[in-house]
Amino acid sequence: MIDFYTAGTPNGRKVAIMLEELAIPYTEHKVDLSKNEQKSPEFIEMNPNGRIPVIVDRQGPHNKEVTVFESGAILYYLAEKYGNFLGHSLAEKAHTLQWVMFQMSAIGPMFGNYHYGMNTLTPKNPAFIERFEKEALRLLGVMEIQLSKNEYLAGQVYTIADIATYPWIIGFIKSKPEWFESKPSVRRWAQLVGERPAVKKVLP
């Protein structure tokens, strides 16, 4: 059994999608970010960085309890444990993980900062917003090139790279449709991933 500590953010949703894709039993524990529950001593014991998501696998390797934080690390752990959505050879795994890292190091921070600049930062800082919008658009261009040649981000097979990236992209497809007017391959990919039953369950 897995205990899953999460909130309604893209990083939380990517792990929820993975758990649903694997069809494994888990218990979801909602963490109220507005009350800073992620900074409580109990939560810090699980994740010293005080961020969601976190999983606690009560039946980890050798039947020992394992706690994993950071969404990318959680996706990797689950993919390795259950032998799915990662690839089999070292080359396949590396190819998948490079696109997971692309999401973690680029898509998440750049899109997240743009959202922060538009919706939270006061007073508004046009230079801040412009910087992150330009970088977000550049990253979409990278995705467009990759997806114009491949069915999914890491190739022809659905992987944790798609699971990691989709929750970030779909929100912006809805809020910033003009960004995607010249990105038909990204839109095609988002529609394909969005039709999966596990994705629909998490993001109806």
Rank of each mutant, 00 (worst) to 15 (best):
Q103S: 08
M1L: 09
E20I: 00
N119F: 14
H62Q: 15
N119R: 15
P53E: 07
A16N: 11
K93V: 12
V193E: 02
Q38S: 08
E70L: 01
G83V: 14
K174C: 01
K39Y: 08
V54R: 01
I55L: 03
V31A: 00
G83T: 15
F128Q: 02
G112V: 06
G87V: 13
G155C: 08
A23G: 15
Y5I: 00
K183P: 08
D57F: 13
F69I: 06
I55E: 01
K149S: 10
P197T: 10
N47F: 07
A198C: 11
E65V: 11
S185Q: 05
I129H: 03
V199M: 06
N49V: 04
L139R: 07
P204V: 05
G141W: 08
Y82L: 13
G60I: 13
D3T: 02
I24Y: 14
I169D: 02
K183S: 03
I2M: 10
L90M: 15
L78W: 14
R131W: 07
E20C: 02
V54P: 01
P167F: 04
F102Y: 11
I107G: 04
P167Q: 10
G108Y: 07
E135M: 00
S40M: 07
E130M: 01
I107R: 06
W99C: 01
R138M: 04
S89R: 15
L203Y: 09
V142F: 05
S182T: 10
G155H: 04
Q156W: 14
I160L: 12
L192W: 00
D32M: 06
G60Q: 14
R58F: 06
I160V: 14
A198Y: 11
R188N: 00
N11K: 14
K149W: 05
K149E: 13
R131C: 01
Y76S: 13
M110D: 06
E21P: 11
N63M: 15
M101K: 10
A91N: 13
L19D: 08
E37W: 07
A79N: 15
P177N: 01
V31R: 00
L203D: 04
E133L: 03
E151Y: 06
F180E: 04
L121N: 09
H29F: 10
F85S: 14
I145Y: 09
M118L: 10
P204T: 02
N47G: 08
Y26C: 12
F180P: 09
R58A: 13
G194C: 09
R58G: 08
E21L: 09
V31G: 06
E45S: 14
I17Y: 05
